[in-house]
Amino acid sequence: MAWPEGYGRRVLAEVDSTNAEGARIAGTLAGPEWILGLRQTAARGRRGRAWVNPPGNFAASLVMRPSEAPEVVALRSFVASLALYDAVSAVVGDATGLALKWPNDVLLHGGKLAGILLESVAGHLVIGIGVNLIAAPGAELVEPEAVQPVSLLAETGRRVAPEALFEALAASYALREAAFVAYGFAPIREAWLSHAARIGEEIVARTGSSEHRGTFETVDERGNLVLKTSEARRAIAAADVFF
């Protein structure tokens, strides 16, 4: 698969965190740049949580300088998750069992295969992506009610090298990014919803101060999770979702 034109590429044998490296180099870049870390020593997930990432798993970040308003820039979590869905489907040759969990996880057979972390650094956006290619964290490292992690190898029997997924992801992201810039969020939203997990089912959305239980109706034009609860129809901008 050809590397997309206009995107830089660097592969590091070891790094503390590809997002941290992205933040360090952001100011030196002339254009968007992908970073692949073959080994991470201080990987991070959402809300500062540790991300278990043994060698053989996938850890990469895209550094870019978008020009839109912050609320539009944030919608790239959907662009990235769609691109990752495309890339995993391409390297495995099958999309069976893959689904997208709001706001930015990729599921396989109901388990968490991958997570995405967006960070803003001095006008730049760093999109970090971690995928359990060969190993998943043990249940003891996961919140009791959270979706349990799974690995691609255990679920499909397919051993995929990080470099192979890197090539596929860069290509798929470039296509989704071009569509997002040209046509806006509407087609990205429609495509994301076509792969969404648990639409029409009851879920729980927890913020730092509250919990909402209701039917997952949709994602709105701002990327909010829309829940139909017993009290009202709620649009939630940020939360942890539990099934």
Rank of each mutant, 00 (worst) to 15 (best):
2 A>D: 15
3 W>K: 09
6 G>Q: 12
7 Y>P: 02
9 R>S: 13
12 L>P: 00
14 E>P: 07
16 D>A: 13
18 T>P: 15
18 T>F: 14
21 E>Y: 13
22 G>Q: 07
25 I>P: 07
26 A>S: 09
27 G>Q: 02
28 T>K: 14
29 L>W: 15
34 W>N: 02
39 R>H: 08
40 Q>M: 08
41 T>V: 06
43 A>R: 03
43 A>L: 03
46 R>N: 13
48 G>N: 05
51 W>A: 01
53 N>Y: 00
57 N>K: 01
59 A>N: 06
63 V>N: 01
65 R>L: 07
65 R>V: 03
69 A>Y: 10
72 V>I: 09
73 V>N: 00
76 R>Y: 11
77 S>P: 02
79 V>N: 01
80 A>Y: 12
80 A>S: 11
86 D>H: 13
95 A>N: 05
99 A>N: 00
100 L>E: 03
102 W>V: 02
103 P>H: 11
106 V>R: 14
107 L>F: 11
108 L>N: 11
109 H>M: 05
109 H>C: 07
110 G>S: 06
111 G>F: 12
111 G>Y: 05
114 A>G: 08
117 L>K: 08
117 L>N: 04
118 L>G: 04
124 H>N: 01
128 G>T: 12
133 L>M: 04
134 I>F: 01
137 P>W: 14
138 G>C: 04
146 A>C: 03
149 P>R: 08
150 V>T: 13
150 V>D: 01
151 S>I: 10
152 L>H: 12
153 L>R: 10
160 V>Y: 11
162 P>K: 01
164 A>I: 08
165 L>E: 02
167 E>Q: 13
167 E>A: 15
171 A>W: 10
178 A>D: 12
178 A>H: 14
179 A>T: 13
180 F>K: 09
181 V>H: 07
185 F>Y: 07
185 F>W: 00
190 E>I: 01
190 E>G: 01
194 S>K: 09
195 H>G: 01
197 A>T: 14
199 I>M: 14
200 G>F: 12
201 E>Q: 15
204 V>T: 14
207 T>R: 13
219 V>D: 00
219 V>S: 02
222 R>P: 01
223 G>K: 04
225 L>E: 00
226 V>K: 06
227 L>M: 02
227 L>A: 00
228 K>H: 14
229 T>R: 06
231 E>T: 14
239 A>S: 03
243 F>C: 06
